[in-house]
Amino acid sequence: MSEMSALPGAVAGGLVDIRELGLQGMVTLKADLSAPETAAAVRAATGTAVPDQRRIIETQTGAVAWMAPDELLILCAHGGADSMVKLLCNALKDIHYLAVNVSDARAFFAIEGSGAREVVAKLAPVDLHPDSFGPGEMRRTRLAQVPAAFWMTGEDSIRLICFRSVARYVFDCLAVSARDGGEVGYF
């Protein structure tokens, strides 16, 4: 039987294009981010360093994002998440850590177009000014009434994740905020 993401194929237009991006591999890693073992494990598993506070580093197969002082989110292929967890477990077995596949706990959206910053700024209390936020930055925050996190993959392109159960709510919030006529003209 097929695997299903939260809102398969959902799209909305207006000031931006909003798309549900289907299933995305995601692994939560909790560990002492300053430990050399953590750095080595992250590099071995993803090929990159531990990102700094509020940063995200894109890799060939996904990305590594800072989530909290002791937490990272690793993006990878959906089918590769369990092996990513195993990789981390093997590399970290000598220190205290937690690695878990959370791919299916999430929904994943793209917000693309010149109004991307504005649409998100209607819902999230984040400084989205280009001087403060751009590709490489990661924000774990609130979107309307639910938790969410987002980052930019290009000047006009935002990737956003939320919990799977509220995918419909988040999509609807984004869609109404993107409706034509709501241009702010701020950024």
Partner: peptide, 16 residues
């Protein structure tokens, strides 16, 4: 209230 009215007055959580 902002966007919080109608269907998105409150988040409704849905199981798979």
């Amino acid at each position: 209230a902002g966007e919080a009215r109608g269907d998105i007055f409150q988040p409704v959580r849905r199981t798979p």
